[in-house]
Nucleic acid binder design. Structure first.
Lengths: 209, 209
DNA sequence: GTCTATATCTCGATAGAC
DNA sequence: GTCTATCGAGATATAGAC
């Protein structure tokens, strides 16, 4: 189930509709009928194309999982100084998340309900040796050895960076309610967020006497 | 629906069972039957006590919402230096989250499905003037003015601190899969996490020339 | 207050005509 | 490939005996 999988026009619409439904209501909460409606297709055709709800979910999740980590990978590649890595990563990943919010929601939903689908997908990353999280961790470890940054735990640091970028999109409804300014100028807030995170992490990781 | 609400013994059991079910499978995915079973009660009694699934969910969410922010509040109070605030908050809040993982899951689930229940609850915090997130933000703003820390955006900083503490618990299944060491010694990992976050943030916020 | 039995509805899935 | 009609499982909710 790689990225090379191709779909017909109808299947594409189903896919997008299913992603949106599963992301908002989870695997159990989503309804085949609403997916069919959103895809402008008959409900019977949904089963004709994807056999069952489980199979549809599995296909959508596999797609989302690859996307989620591809977004990370694209941001780590090709950067010289570690500060440039940090800058590129934070900017690139927040932009990616902004454009793929359903991807985040589905990933989180899957984790909340146990994450059984995650298990199989993780092995995909390992075997391909293209795990972008590991790439980020390795890059951090490298920078601690060269003295480019303070001696920090690479795994913890990577987790902190990811947390700080992703969490906002998860709790956006609460954020919006507590600080209406966030909703009034969402893009502006996200630009501020990038700057804040780069500033905080560069200072937090900078070597000291 | 304040904390002063009292419940009978049976209602307490229902409450705990419902929290667990809603947290793992969401409002739609959770089943009244499984809640009844877990509460060691007849399914009809569930409706006798709480009328409907919607009302049960509303009651559980209100309880969880208060708990979630009370956990933040308890950690901000009574600390002298800002570094002490940071230390107390991170230690206290991670410990709180560790002991109330279903609270996190339910909060996130609600946000993923639109967060309609959040709207009413936020007004509760505002009117009571006991919004602990605002307290944290105020404390950060204060520290920037006295020069105790660098001039940073208080809202962004508070969001970063919360993100870094909470996110791990949301994506734990994925973490465990990518780094089995996390599952082998969970408590140890969380102690490391506290130390890492305190270290990173203290350095990141420390005033510089 | 407690439980059994059941009404009512909704969902996933399929049969079968076209 | 496409659609209508429907089956059967399982869900919420309630009626009514005790």
């Amino acid at each position: 189930m790689t990225d090379t999988t191709t779909y017909t026009e109808a299947e594409e619409r189903i896919f997008e509709a299913a992603l949106q439904a599963f992301a908002r209501k989870g695997k159990d909460g989503a309804r085949m009928q609403e997916i069919a409606d959103a895809a402008q297709i008959n409900k019977a055709m949904l089963h004709y194309y994807f056999r069952s709800k489980d199979k549809l979910y599995a296909a959508v999740f596999a797609y989302v999982f690859q996307r989620f980590f591809a977004g990370i990978g694209a941001a780590v590649e090709e950067a010289e100084s570690f500060e440039a890595v940090l800058r590129t990563f934070i900017t690139g990943y927040i932009d990616f998340l902004k454009d793929h919010q359903d991807v985040v929601r589905l990933m989180v939903n899957e984790n909340l309900s146990g994450g059984e689908a995650v298990v199989q997908q993780v092995s995909t990353l390992k075997s391909a040796d293209g795990n972008p999280v590991r790439a980020l961790i390795t890059r951090i470890a490298q920078a601690t050895k060269t003295g480019e940054i303070r001696p920090v735990d690479p795994f913890q640091t990577a987790l902190t960076v990811l947390s700080s970028c992703i969490f906002f999109f998860i709790v956006y409804p609460t954020m919006r309610e507590m600080n209406p300014g966030v909703a009034r100028d969402r893009d502006g807030f996200l630009e501020e967020r990038k700057a804040h995170l780069i500033d905080l992490l560069v200072h937090g990781l900078h070597p000291r006497s």
